[in-house]
Simulated assay, not measured.
Amino acid sequence: MKTRLVIALSTAALLAGCGWSDSSLNPFSWFRSEPEVRVAATATAIPADPRPLVAQVLTVGVERTTSGAILTAIGLPPTQGYYDAELVALNDGRPLDGVLRYEFRASPPPAPRPAGTQPSREISAAQALSANLLAGVARIEVIAATNRRAASR
């Protein structure tokens, strides 16, 4: 009986110490909340892709896969030496009125290069497209500086 009384009084004294908000024994004071600070939203500019559009899109193809499709394109830059070709999605990669649009971009060579023959300038790029993305798409367009080509269902 005396042991229970000692434990009860010790527990009561310990809990009484938790009543002070500055006490390190008070578990509610271990993490302090700070007042919410509101920050005004500012528009952050997404840097534009510095790579120019290729001069022409020669071909566009869509090959079905088990998970959707692969969009391929062959482009023609103005000279030899273009690299880092990519099909860059427009409209955040979402179809607009059933049309999915991509720009064909590539990095120019670091130094001037000869034009050369058409086959020596051709570059290709590809983009995987999921089945979910293609569900509402009737047409896919690839845009170049002087033309655009499309594949339709």
Rank of each mutant, 00 (worst) to 15 (best):
R32K: 15
S120L: 12
A115N: 00
L90W: 06
D84Y: 05
S33H: 11
D22W: 14
L134P: 05
P35D: 13
V54I: 11
T44E: 14
P50I: 02
S24W: 09
D84M: 05
P119R: 01
E103F: 02
A131K: 05
I70Q: 07
T79S: 13
L96F: 07
S29V: 00
P119D: 09
Y83F: 11
V54A: 06
S130P: 00
S67F: 08
A40D: 13
S124F: 03
C18W: 12
G61E: 12
Y83R: 15
P50A: 02
T117L: 12
G75S: 02
E86I: 08
N26G: 07
V62N: 02
L71P: 07
A55K: 05
D49W: 05
V54Y: 06
P35V: 08
P78K: 10
Q56D: 11
L129K: 03
G68H: 04
V62M: 11
P50K: 01
Q56S: 12
I46L: 14
P52T: 03
V88C: 01
A45F: 09
S21A: 11
A131C: 03
A89I: 03
G136F: 00
A13P: 02
T66K: 11
S23W: 08
L129E: 06
S107Y: 01
L133G: 04
R121C: 04
D49V: 09
P52E: 06
E86K: 14
G75E: 05
G68S: 09
T66C: 02
L58V: 10
L87G: 07
P27K: 07
S29L: 03
R32W: 03
T72Q: 12
W20M: 09
P27N: 04
